[in-house]
Amino acid sequence: MTYVVMDNCIACKYTDCVEVCPVDCFYEGENMLVIHPDECIDCGVCEPECPADAIRPDTEADTEKWVEFNRKYSEIWPVIVTKKDPLPTAEELDGTPNKLDTHFSEKPGEGD
C-alpha cells in the first residue's frame, strides 16, 4: 500500500503533510504536491494532516490513476520537506470538483 495525493490538492497546496513525513517522499509542483509511491512507507501520518483531505491510501476506489500520476510527477518535480504557506486560492477552491481538468499545472515548484 502507498498513499497518493489526489486532485483536491490542486490550487490549494497545503504543505502540512511534508513536515510529518519521515521519509521525505513529497514532491512539489507549481500548484500541488505528489507522493512518490515507491518511497512512501505507508505510515499514514500525512493523511490526517491535510486540511484539503487530498491524501488517500491507494486501497480506496478510483486511486489507480492517481498512483501513476503521483509517480510521474514525483520523478520530475523537486522534493519538498519544509512547510510553506498554502496558495492564495486555497480556501476559495478547496473542494472544487474536477480541478485536474481546470486548474492543474505541470510546472515544477521551488522545492527545498
Rank of each mutant, 00 (worst) to 15 (best):
M1G: 08
T2Q: 15
T2M: 15
V4P: 03
M6H: 03
D7M: 07
N8I: 02
C9S: 09
C9H: 13
I10V: 14
A11T: 00
C12R: 04
K13N: 06
Y14T: 08
Y14S: 08
Y14D: 09
Y14H: 11
T15D: 11
V18Q: 08
V18S: 04
E19L: 09
V20F: 11
C21M: 08
D24E: 12
F26T: 03
Y27R: 06
E28D: 05
E28K: 03
G29V: 02
N31V: 01
I35G: 02
H36R: 05
H36M: 06
H36Y: 10
H36A: 10
D38V: 01
D38C: 01
D38N: 09
C43A: 12
G44V: 07
V45A: 09
V45D: 13
V45N: 05
E47D: 10
P48E: 14
P48L: 11
A52T: 12
D53M: 00
A54D: 12
A54C: 15
R56P: 05
P57H: 01
D58K: 09
D58P: 10
D58R: 07
E60Y: 12
T63N: 03
E64W: 04
K65M: 09
W66H: 14
V67K: 12
E68P: 03
E68C: 00
K72H: 10
Y73I: 02
S74C: 07
I76H: 02
I76T: 04
W77L: 02
V79N: 08
K84A: 05
P86C: 05
A90K: 02
E91N: 12
E91R: 06
L93Y: 08
D94S: 15
N98W: 15
D101M: 15
T102P: 00
H103L: 13
F104K: 13
F104D: 03
F104A: 13
S105V: 08
E106K: 12
P108Y: 10
G109K: 14
G109Y: 14
G109D: 12
G111E: 07
